[in-house]
Design a protein around this nucleic acid. Structure first.
Lengths: 231, 231
DNA sequence: ACTTCGATCTCGTAC
DNA sequence: GTACGAGGTCGAAGT
C-alpha cells in the first residue's frame, strides 16, 4: 500500500465526468492497483477513485502542456470499460509504501436472515393468530420468506425485510398474485414485516390490501435468548 | 488526517456485529473524527469504519484483560446510535498526521437530473408531438419525471433514466396505474426514456404498452449549447 | 461470467 | 431534521 499526501487535481471521465480542483489530499494506491483520493472529511467514500483491475501510466509533467508550471507528475489510470482517472500532482508532502499482506477478512453476524429465523420461531410476534407452515416456501419466482396460517385457516404470505421499502412490497405483490392462482390454498393474505417501513412503501402496501407490521429486532432477540439481554 | 499502519484487531457492534482478526492494516482518522480501516485490496469500501459524528476514547492496554500481552493500545469509538467500534493495536509500523484543510469539493456533470432538465426544455426530442405540462409532477407514490401532452391531447407520463433497467419500468407502471384512476386526465400513455435501455427492460415495457425511447445525452447537450460541442 | 440483492451503504436534495 | 431516490455504488450469493 502506497500513501501519498500531495497537492493534486483530478479528472474522471467514464459513466460521468467529474473534476477536483487543486487541493492537498490523500492518495491511496492499494496492492491490487486500485486508487482512491480522500479529503479530510466525509464518510468512507473517496472523492474520486478507480477500482481494480486497472492500469496506471505515469509521466513527467510537460511544461508545454502546463502553462502554470505547478505540475510535477501526471498519472493516468484506465480500466477495462475505458473509464479514465487523471491525477496531476504538485507538491508531495509525504510518500511511503508498506507491505501489508493478505487480510484474513471480516466476519459478520446479525442481518436479515437472523430476523427471518426469529420470526419463523415465533410468528405470533407478527400477529397473534399466526402459525408457521413453512419458512422459505418455494415458488417459481422465488421463495416466500414465511408462509403462515391465520386463526381462521386462511394462508398468510409474510415478506421480511430489515428496512421496508417499495421494492419489498412489489416482491410480495408478485408472490401473492402467484399464490392466489393456486386454488388449493384458498384465500391468501399478505403481510409486510420490517424493523422500519418507509411511508411510501406503506401507502403502496395498504393500497393493495397488504398489512404492514413493524417489529423490534432487539426485543425479538431478547425474547428468544433472555440470558443475552443487557438490561 | 492521521494515518497509522499497525497490526490490529477490530470489533464492531451496532446494526450488526463484525470482527476482524489480527493483521496489519491501514487505520485512517479524518479531521471530522471518522475512522476507517483498510486492507491492501478491495474497492474503496473499508473493512470496518465509523462515520462522523463519533467520539473516540483511548486507553493503555491492561495486561489483566489481555492475557496474550500483544495489545499496546485500545481505542473505543462510539456514535450517537450507540454503535461501537473497538480497535486493539499491537505493533505500530507508522503513525503520521497532516493538516489538509477544507476541500473545494467535487464537480459532477452528466447525471439524470441534467438529462431530465434538457428533456423538459425540449420534450419533442422524445417524440415530436409532445409538449410539457409539468416536470416532477407529484403523486402520492412519488413524482412523475415529466408529465406531457401528446398532439391528440392525451397525457403522456415520461420516466427518465440514465440507464433504463427493469425497476424503472416498474416505477413508471405504478405511476400509470395511479394516473389512469384519475378520470380528469382521460387516457394516459407511458414513455420510458434513457440513454441505454436493457433488452429485458424493453421487453417488459413493450409488453405493458409502454414505449421506449433512447436519447443521446451529448447530442441533447449540443443542441442546447452548440458552443460547448467538442466535435 | 453474469445477475440479483442487501448494505454499519453514502450522498444529494426536497420537504 | 427527516425522508426519499440514485450511485462511477461495493460485495456476496446464486445461476
Amino acid at each position: 500500500m502506497r500513501l501519498i499526501i500531495a497537492r493534486c487535481q483530478v479528472d474522471y471521465a467514464g459513466k460521468l465526468t467529474a473534476h477536483l480542483p487543486w487541493a492537498t489530499r490523500l492518495i491511496m494506491v492499494k496492492a491490487d492497483g486500485s486508487i482512491q483520493i480522500h479529503a479530510d472529511d466525509g464518510a468512507y467514500k473517496p472523492l474520486n477513485w478507480m477500482s481494480a483491475p486497472c492500469l496506471m501510466t505515469r509521466q513527467e509533467a510537460d511544461p508545454a502542456l502546463d502553462p502554470s508550471g505547478q505540475l510535477t507528475e501526471l498519472w493516468s489510470v484506465r480500466n477495462r470499460s475505458g473509464d479514465t482517472l487523471q491525477i496531476g500532482l504538485a507538491e508531495i508532502l509525504s510518500d511511503s509504501a508498506y507491505e501489508l499482506g493478505r487480510d484474513p477478512g471480516l466476519r459478520k453476524d446479525g442481518v436479515e436472515k437472523h430476523l427471518q429465523r426469529l420470526l419463523a420461531e415465533d410468528p405470533s410476534a407478527i400477529r397473534s393468530d399466526l402459525s408457521l407452515v413453512q419458512r422459505e416456501y418455494q415458488t417459481p419466482i422465488g421463495p416466500v420468506d414465511l408462509l403462515c396460517r391465520a386463526g381462521d385457516g386462511s394462508y398468510v404470505a409474510v415478506e421480511v425485510k430489515r428496512r421496508g421499502e417499495i421494492d419489498g412490497v412489489e416482491q410480495l405483490t408478485r408472490y401473492l398474485e402467484l399464490l392466489r392462482r393456486d386454488s388449493l390454498l384458498g384465500r391468501v393474505e399478505g403481510v409486510f414485516v420490517a424493523q422500519q417501513i418507509k411511508p411510501q412503501a406503506e401507502v403502496v402496501a395498504l393500497d393493495r390490501g397488504i398489512a404492514c407490521v413493524r417489529v423490534d429486532y432487539d426485543a425479538l432477540r431478547g425474547a428468544d435468548h433472555p440470558e443475552e439481554r443487557l438490561f
